[in-house]
Design a protein around this nucleic acid. Structure first.
Lengths: 340, 340
DNA sequence: CTGAAAGCGCTTACAG
DNA sequence: CTGAAAGCGCTTACAG
């Protein structure tokens, strides 16, 4: 076992001072070529690499980004991490990931943990519980300390910081409009409870488009699902009690569940029922029939979030309070679950 | 903006020494109750939290685990991270994630980066390219420096360290055996190229069971796919040229692709063709028909890997060279793609 | 051109 | 009971 070598050891071996070694390795012009080369050769031989922790302490920056998301076993979030990681890598940053598991307490604990010097800033998406409680003191605290935060997807207007989102309302509007343009009338909505910010916005988009077309809203067609695990029952109920033409689902899971239930009842898709879902993930692509979706481009969201964060980190300036909200464009990917 | 407070500042405010503050906050019996309480109250008021970086430098341990995986946009790997994160969290560790993107170079760079003090140890799964090159110097280097490494899923016998895997060969054996027991004769195998360790092992299991049943191996039924993105062609070819009874696929993607192609040709599943796949992911659960799979329990793998790593980290002992390989049990989850 | 000193934020053995 | 000193591994302004 050969432990990592330090400046001190090199200095001792070469019988020079630590300062001289440090300067030599950083190609300081202060040092004579002679000793510089000697030190460099020795360092190379022993595979010297500066200790990141020591550098972090000295420089007061860690070159790492903290990511806090509700869960990772969820294609969209995995996609966003992937995007963040890409630009982090390009810019020499590392990425440290914590999961809130949709729990407010875990979110707070993780955030405080990372805020104590482990990261330079945060990229995060709020847990359901946090959105429900509307308690953002942990974010506020971190922001007050001067650490930049970028929120994505599940955000809150109560927090002043950079954000990256899609236009959920517009996307829902357009998707529903697409269904209406196909001559479909009775369009059901499978959404989340209202405290989930994106669910609420998508619901609003749906309502707006109906309104703009003079279609009366039928509340019995709007299914607000709290518990994703047991969405079957409520969806089944909808399909039993209503004869509908189309469904807009705020996520893939609701969509695929609806499709499977419908098919089991002999309802043909897309002939009898058209389905459009948010989030272009793995399910939509491989379900049968494949599902028409609103792509959410997680990679792009992640890249943009990372760019915004790093930009702010490297802006040596004191804070410029000019927070931006970037909108990532979505597009409708038309597949088999809607008529052509 | 209120920057984080340090011991130094508290000491100054309270007009005591830094040592006294430090000891007070750590409840040292050396300090009088009087000053201890005074310091603690003040610290609480200013929400003092020790700086992780300084602690890391002092203690020479970072309490963070480095994870290096080929990609995160892959349900299985996301699942493993989730498992790692669970036990890391329980034990007060953080998790820093790097993606190799299946590239040897990225794997090396990330590993070297993290090895310079950022993490106490590694949990990783090898990139395809690394497995192909069989160049493990980066792992060897890190191990030589005394940092523990736990390898999972895509491992190599050339590296001496703890490992956690499933018994790929046995699982393939049993899955194929299950198909044979249903009276199915012509069983095709959709696998990866041989340098992918798990692909190779699964292929071996398939070959062994045929051998044990005295079934002659038909090489034209073994499809070794290099490029996952374009697996369609090769699978299509198989279905065109052969009339087969069943398919064992080494991943979900091959399976669902085969199912979709087969159905488009009017082949009924499971009546005409049974399909079993490795990796119980999201696709198998939501495809139509749902797919019978060999569950790979990523959460459990992740948890086990983290337990092994942390155990070694906290084993103050010098290294005990007793490396273990844990086998996570798999089980067959029977769904619609195989006859009951 | 080289090196001692101070400092990043902390802990702890040792004096007093 | 309190505090000065040394040290983790590094950098850099400042002397010499």
């Amino acid at each position: 076992m050969r432990r990592k070598v330090t400046l001190k050891q090199i200095a001792k071996e070469l019988d020079v001072s630590i300062s001289t070694v440090s300067k030599s390795l950083r190609d300081s012009p202060e040092i004579s070529e002679d000793t510089r080369l000697k030190v460099q050769a020795f360092a190379k031989l022993y595979n010297y690499k500066p200790n990141n922790i020591a550098l972090s302490l000295k420089n007061k920056k860690t070159k790492t980004i903290g990511i806090i998301i509700p869960e990772i076993v969820h294609h969209f979030f995995a996609t966003v991490i992937s995007g963040i990681e890409q630009v982090a890598n390009e810019c020499g940053y590392n990425v440290i990931v914590c999961l809130s598991d949709e729990s407010f307490d875990k979110e707070v604990i993780n955030m405080e943990m990372l805020a104590n010097g482990s990261t330079d800033g945060f990229i995060m998406s709020l847990s359901k519980e946090t959105q429900q409680k509307k308690d953002f003191h942990h974010l506020q605290e971190v922001i007050n300390q001067g650490m930049p935060v970028v929120l994505f997807d599940r955000i809150s207007n109560d927090i002043l910081c950079d954000k990256v989102i899609i236009d959920d309302q517009l996307a829902a509007y357009e998707a529903t409009n697409f269904l209406i343009s196909k001559g479909l009338k009775k369009i059901a909505l499978l959404t989340t409870v209202d405290y989930v910010s994106v669910g609420k916005l998508r619901t609003d988009g749906y309502l707006n488009v109906l309104h703009d077309h003079g279609i009366e809203v039928d509340e019995s067609l709007i299914i607000r699902i709290e518990d994703t695990e047991h969405c079957d029952e409520k969806i089944n109920e909808l399909l039993e009690n209503q004869s509908i033409d189309a469904i807009l689902a705020v996520n893939e899971l609701f969509a695929v569940t609806a499709i499977k239930l419908a098919m089991s009842k002999g309802i043909k898709i897309p002939e009898d029922l058209s389905v459009v879902a948010f989030t272009d993930g793995i399910i939509s692509k491989y379900s049968t029939p494949t599902i028409t979706t609103i792509s959410q481009n997680g990679i792009k969201m992640g890249r943009k979030a990372a760019e915004m964060l790093i930009k702010r980190l490297e802006l040596e300036d004191e804070e410029d309070e000019h927070y931006k909200t970037e909108i990532i464009e979505t597009n409708l990917i038309i597949r088999e679950s809607t008529k052509s």
